[in-house]
Amino acid sequence: MAQVGVGTEAPKGADQLFNGKKRSLNKNWTYWEGPRIAAELPIKWEIVEDPIDKGQAVSANDPAAAGGKYGAADIVTKKKYTDFRLHIEFLIKNEGGNSGVYLQNRYEIQILDGDSTTHGMAAIINEKAAPYVVYNGLGKWNAYDIKFRAARFDENGKLSEKAMTTIYFNGKKIHENVSIQKVWGGPNSGLDGGRDGGEGITNRPGGIKLQAEGHEVLFRNIWIERLKLEKPNTDF
């Protein structure tokens, strides 16, 4: 098994998407220009001191997303991905803190303090809940380690295999080879959200997106490794 959990370093050849520095943020990320976009570059997500360890982190509390207006100030990687291994660390400062990690800017892995449902912490949004006990709690760093295989299409462009993921949460495997059924949340949520109720998945690659919903959710140590997964298996 690959190393997983808080503090896992990027393997050789991986892209370091965020290392705590403003330069890293602006180099690798931009605002997602969805239908509800209300923010303007440069990115207003603030670089803050890491409240636990040395170094810095970035806060998702963009003023344009005040009141929980998702899609107004979400940030997405400039590079787009198909199959990959992703590592991301987050810290929620206050009760009810809400954000999300979007795979291919389509499929949300939820970040939500206080919720253990299929819409809650570490859930594959609206489809599969995760064991809430794995969450380290407020004011502590948490880590998602995600292996993802994008949807596949036949020669006529018809969906033949749904997207699939395996996820570790703080070093514990919580989802194994789970097929993701659709894009939830409509066009304001991500790519293809407005196509056939989220079921009209296309073969466009997408970036990694982080959600701004007006909460103090911090992120650090984000890296991604491109993969080529020929078989429908994401276990690791």
Rank of each mutant, 00 (worst) to 15 (best):
M1A: 14
M1W: 11
Q3V: 12
T8H: 06
E9Q: 13
A10V: 05
G13Y: 06
Q16R: 13
G20R: 06
G20P: 04
K21V: 09
K21I: 02
R23I: 08
S24R: 07
N28R: 04
W29E: 00
P35G: 08
A38H: 11
A39G: 02
A39P: 03
A39H: 03
I43C: 00
K44Q: 15
K44N: 14
K44F: 06
W45V: 07
I47D: 01
E49H: 15
D50A: 08
D50E: 12
D53H: 12
D53N: 15
D53R: 13
G55E: 06
N61E: 06
N61R: 08
A65Q: 01
A66T: 09
A66N: 10
G67T: 03
K69S: 14
A72L: 03
A72V: 08
I75G: 03
I75L: 02
V76F: 10
T77F: 01
K79M: 14
Y81S: 04
H87E: 11
F90R: 02
I92D: 02
I92C: 10
E95R: 14
N98S: 13
N98F: 08
I109L: 13
Q110H: 06
L112V: 06
D113F: 01
T118F: 13
G120C: 04
A123M: 09
I125H: 12
E127C: 06
K128P: 04
A130W: 01
P131K: 06
P131W: 04
Y132S: 06
N142E: 00
A143T: 02
Y144M: 14
I146N: 07
K147E: 11
F153H: 05
E155H: 12
E155G: 11
G157T: 04
G157K: 10
K158Y: 12
L159G: 03
E161L: 09
K162P: 02
A163V: 07
M164I: 05
M164W: 02
T165W: 07
T166Q: 03
N170E: 04
K172R: 14
K172W: 07
K173H: 12
N177Y: 11
V178Y: 12
S179R: 11
S179I: 00
I180C: 10
V183S: 01
W184K: 13
W184F: 15
G185S: 05
G185W: 06
G186W: 03
N188S: 15
G193E: 09
R195E: 15
G197Q: 11
G197P: 00
I201L: 11
P205C: 00
G206V: 04
I208Y: 04
E213N: 09
G214N: 04
H215P: 02
H215N: 12
E216L: 09
V217W: 03
N221P: 02
L227F: 10
E230V: 14
K231C: 07
N233V: 11
